[in-house]
């Protein structure tokens, strides 16, 4: 069962998923790689970064991913 604080950011590939997880770890943000086509909203490979946090957290994570040139779905990231 999904918690209300879980957010999902679909990524372009498993390579980008792993890279994103590592980058976020270095910045103290814990994330999990899962494969969930529903959460992926039709984007990429079905791999999704699951994070716990608010809309602000999601925006912060997205900015990090952009800086690191990680392919992800910029429009996604909902609950």
């Amino acid at each position: 069962m999904k918690s209300k604080n879980e957010r999902y950011i679909p990524v372009g590939s498993i390579t980008y998923a792993i890279k994103a997880k590592k980058v976020l770890e270095k910045k103290g943000i814990r994330s999990y790689i899962i494969r969930d086509f529903e959460a992926a909203e039709g984007y990429g490979c079905g791999y999704v970064l699951k994070i716990n946090g608010t809309d602000e957290t999601v925006e912060s994570v997205k900015n990090i991913l952009i800086d690191e040139k990680i392919k992800f779905c910029e429009e996604c990231g909902g609950k």
């Binding site: 372009g12 590939s13 498993i14 390579t15 990429g44 490979c45 079905g46 791999y47 392919k71």
Partner: peptide
């Protein structure tokens, strides 16, 4: 390649 399975287009990014 494991991604974009419903699309005929080959992924346009490395390394896929």
């Amino acid at each position: 390649s494991g991604n974009r399975s419903l699309m005929y287009e080959q992924p346009d990014f490395m390394p896929d």
